[in-house]
Design a protein around this nucleic acid. Structure first.
Lengths: 220, 220
DNA sequence: TAGATTGTTAATCGATTAACAATC
DNA sequence: TAGATTGTTAATCGATTAACAATC
């Protein structure tokens, strides 16, 4: 009963690996003019098993050629198509401080199908600033802009205590996917996707590695 | 032959979960005055299985009391001790742009045992700026400062093309743990830990979720 | 053809969950 | 004591890897 055109949902592990393949192949294209790459080459560079590379590519419908490998263009097209980079989704960034500004300036949004249509901040001093061509608006206008542009995705880069109320307002306005950089968990209704970027987990891993390896180095 | 004082290395999954417990319990402490929390309570709030919570806590040596639960203070102490938050490790941030500034301003470093002793940038216009009390220095002084302070960890927040040469210099100066925010992979010798923060993976996941759920919303 | 590489089934491995005895 | 909750062994599940036939 499985419709061939409705592939199984990919989990986060495979999405992350597909992105690794995608970046790797994008870099390789300049170096390797053949237009083909083998699963063993990819696996070697990413320090993983080549079978897993073939499984992942099979899962998104990329067919390889025995003795030749996988077409680099074919691979990149399939990743783009599968992950939605060929669509256009409007997004907003809530919080135009240093982090929001850094995220807004990141060149990647357009490459992955996301168009930042607005930035919001509650600080009047920031309203009117222009970041990569987009003026910062007051957060009071958020609902209006979201509805006007049919925005379904948002990035939250505000202090922890402001995040949950803003998430509630985003969801009420129609946002269904949130990328949360605030150091607090968000409660959202079913059907709303939240990716929480845990800054403190990064710090904890650095600390743990240093402790495990007795790298006290300087200090005390 | 296993020395009781040399516990097994924890993998990234468990480190991440420990951080979730830690934050959850820190928040609960104000709400729940009893001083104890059960594995079932934690599991419920984090939408996971209570057995896994008990396994994780057992792995870091936290003992619970039947019918009572785990001491919130005991749990937090054990996480701090295990992950190294009670030590002090010096760290530097390389790249004092918006992202570097945002990271530097993040309140967490000290809480997790990391002391930011210096920020570096190659742009003379930024040298002399002060971020959370730390003056930005020219990157030419990096090696000197790292050696002087016995720095073993660094955060890289520079453009992609500058990241690898800087990583090489960091490693040559003694850095053994790197948190990389530049959108490029780093090649480092064995024994050097790199945590790569993949901004594009976050974007890809948003795009994929929107595509999977036909949330075209606005645009085109 | 011989041989390199894909594609796929079966085996393994590691992480999670279930079951339940131990404990207070 | 009865009952709630921990601690731990066994079972399950899902992801990864091994093996190898199919292909060009």
């Amino acid at each position: 009963m499985q419709d061939r055109k409705q592939p199984m949902a990919l989990n986060q592990l495979i999405v992350e690996r597909l992105m690794h393949y995608y970046h790797l192949v994008a870099e390789q294209i300049e170096i390797n003019a053949s237009g083909y790459v083998s699963s063993a080459q990819i696996a070697h560079l990413l320090d993983m098993d080549d079978t897993l590379v073939r499984k992942d590519l099979a899962a998104i419908g990329v067919r390889g050629r025995p003795r030749v490998g996988f077409s680099t263009n074919g691979l990149m097209d399939a990743v783009r198509e599968t992950l939605g980079f060929n669509e256009h989704y409007n997004a907003v960034i809530v919080g135009a401080g240093r982090l929001g500004g850094a995220i807004a300036s990141y060149a990647g949004f357009g490459k992955y199908g996301l168009d930042v249509v607005a930035l919001f901040d509650s600080d009047p001093a920031r309203v009117g600033d222009v970041l990569r061509g987009i003026p910062v608006e007051h957060v009071d206008r958020m609902e209006e802009v979201i509805k006007q542009h049919g925005v379904r995705s948002a990035v939250i880069t505000v202090p922890a205590e402001a995040a949950q109320p803003l998430a509630d307002r985003l969801v009420a306005s129609g946002v269904r996917a949130i990328w949360n950089f605030a150091p607090t968990s968000l409660v959202v209704p079913p059907g709303v996707f939240v990716r929480h970027e845990h800054i403190s987990v990064g710090l904890a891993e650095l600390a743990y590695y240093l402790k495990r390896n007795d790298l006290g180095g300087g200090h005390i």
